[in-house]
Computed example of a mutant assay.
Amino acid sequence: MKPNSSLSTRSLRCILAGLGLLLAALVISDLSSAQAQSAATSRPSSTSIRTPDFDETLSWYQDKLGFRLIGSENFVQGRRAVLERSGFLLEVTEVDHLLQQDQDPDATGGVAVTRLPVISLIVPDVDKEVSRLRKAGVDILQAPEDELDGRFRTAQIRDNGRHRIELREPIDENGFNAMGR
């Protein structure tokens, strides 16, 4: 009778393992379709930047833009930290060198700036934010202006390294800017 109970136990384990795999596949399928629907209707809420000036970059994002440190890790290759501001996550990775970039005509101080913004932050008042950042010594790459479609007022700044950051102030669908501009 022992061989039959062993066979039954083995069969039961296989059935349970199969059911577990089927359940996992269903959960993954549901998550994937939910993520696809969410991605179609939402904007990105995170990004990652690389920098050789890790400590300086963390301080810059905390002091100038109000990000808070969520956590950090040390690896053999360098360090990594995650910062957060109003639900937006920023991963900062330490590197010993940066990838070559084509020279940007907007480069300042001999440091090439990314051509397109790597970060886009929603702010309540772009003009006030730019004024505050200018007083704090931040490089302003584009003064505040309304986008052609009239949905956002935008400006662009440069972080302590070479990353272009876009500041966006929403304007409602009727062209009304709640800030009175």
Rank of each mutant, 00 (worst) to 15 (best):
T9I: 13
V27R: 15
Q142I: 06
P44W: 02
D127R: 11
A34G: 04
F75Q: 02
D125I: 03
D104I: 01
T93I: 14
L22P: 03
N160H: 01
L58A: 08
T9W: 09
E56G: 14
M1F: 09
L21R: 12
N4Q: 12
L22K: 07
D159N: 10
Q156P: 00
F176E: 15
I49S: 10
G18E: 04
R168G: 02
S8M: 09
M179Q: 15
S42H: 06
D159T: 07
D102I: 05
L116E: 05
I70E: 15
R80Q: 13
R164Y: 03
S5T: 09
C14F: 05
V82E: 04
A136Y: 01
Q62P: 06
I70H: 11
C14L: 12
S46K: 09
G18Y: 02
V76I: 12
A40M: 15
T47Q: 04
S46L: 08
L121I: 09
D172Q: 02
T93G: 10
R10Y: 13
D106R: 13
R168H: 03
F152M: 07
R168E: 06
E166Q: 14
E94D: 12
L90S: 08
G109P: 03
G180Y: 05
A143D: 13
D53N: 15
Q100L: 11
S33D: 13
F88G: 12
V76Y: 12
R153C: 01
Q77K: 11
H97P: 00
D139H: 11
E147F: 00
I119Q: 10
T41M: 11
V130G: 06
D104M: 04
L90V: 11
S33P: 02
I165Y: 08
L133W: 00
L23P: 01
K135V: 00
S131R: 05
S59L: 14
R134S: 04
Q100A: 12
P117E: 03
A155L: 11
I171H: 05
L22T: 13
Q77L: 11
S131Q: 08
D63Y: 09
I28H: 09
G175W: 06
R13Y: 13
N177D: 14
E84P: 02
Y61K: 13
V130E: 05
S38Q: 11
I122W: 02
G110D: 01
E73V: 09
A107S: 09
